[in-house]
């Protein structure tokens, strides 16, 4: 069992290594390899279920979740986000003025590569950009207001498939590649890469937590997490994962976080937005 897993991982890593070394970055091939690896390893998990993280991996957890989700604990955040969307800034503008389609049903297009500024823009980054452009104070990246606005935006996008594009711009490919390298690089005193947990060990437990598969892993964010006793954003989840391996969490909006989210969301193209989520 363990052997088999190791071999499968070696194949994924092996397939990725030449791409890491050479200049011919091939995101399409990566996305195909990702899908193949996870669907072969978990043949019983319906494709669209990977976006439910730990629940897609564990029957017992799933039952608990279905019971809790009768009264979803993220509801208050969605309501608050909706309210915030309806409340004008001091200059009279609103969040809706900053986004395509007034910010409704667009979560699946984030992060995107902005050819003007030459960088990856995550949804959280875009929210703070909107605030700054309108003379407002940016939000803390990890919870509260940021979680509420992004929860509302995710909620209005539920079921829409990830549609992340890599424009024909060498800087976009480079950003994707940096994100991929960040994902596979070991770090922290415990020497883990993101892949150690979410590619090598999904479905296994570290202590009592069931690890989510990397395929579709950004679809449910932001999440209400019992362990946090509240909502957390993508930034908060990444920072927690970094801390768990006694690594250095990055500041909100950091380019590495935006790039790794770009990579993870691109290789999950086609999977539906499931956020906001509820987690143990």
């Amino acid at each position: 069992m363990l052997r088999k897993t190791l071999i499968a991982v070696a194949i994924v890593v092996g397939a990725a290594t030449p791409l890491l070394a050479a200049n011919d970055v091939n995101p399409q091939a990566d996305a195909k390899a990702f899908k193949e690896y996870f669907t072969k390893r978990f043949p019983k998990v319906p494709l669209k279920d990977f976006v439910n993280g730990p629940y897609s991996m564990d029957e017992g957890l799933r039952k608990q979740w279905e019971a809790i989700d009768q009264f979803p604990p993220y509801d208050f955040a969605v309501d608050k986000g909706k309210q915030m969307f309806a409340t004008p800034f001091k200059n009279g503008k609103t969040f809706a003025d900053c986004f395509p389609n007034k910010g409704i049903g667009i979560r699946q297009n984030y992060p995107y590569f902005d050819t003007k500024s030459g960088q990856v823009i995550s949804l959280e980054y875009a929210v703070n950009q909107c605030l700054k452009d309108n003379g407002e104070k940016p939000f803390d990246y990890t919870k509260d207001d940021m979680a509420a606005v992004t929860a509302y935006m995710a909620f209005t996008s539920r079921g829409k498939p990830f549609d992340i594009k890599i424009p024909n711009d060498p800087r976009a490919l480079a950003a994707y590649q940096r994100g991929k390298e960040y994902f596979y690089t070991r770090r922290g005193q415990l020497n883990f890469s993101c892949a150690s947990c979410h590619v090598q060990s999904p479905g296994h437990r570290i202590r009592t937590e069931v690890l989510a598969p990397a395929y579709g892993i950004t679809a449910a964010l932001p999440i209400y997490r019992s362990a946090w006793n509240g909502m957390g954003t993508t930034t908060r989840r990444f920072r927690t994962c970094n801390s768990q391996v006694r690594g250095m969490p990055l500041p909100g909006g950091d380019e590495d976080y935006r790039d790794v989210e770009y990579f993870l969301s691109y290789v999950s193209n086609g999977l539906p937005i499931s956020g906001p989520g509820t987690r143990p």
């Binding site: 005193q189 020497n191 947990c197």
Partner: peptide
């Protein structure tokens, strides 16, 4: 490929 931390090398 192991996920087991290198306890001595990383001074754990």
């Amino acid at each position: 490929q192991t996920v087991m931390p290198p306890f001595k090398r990383n001074l754990l």
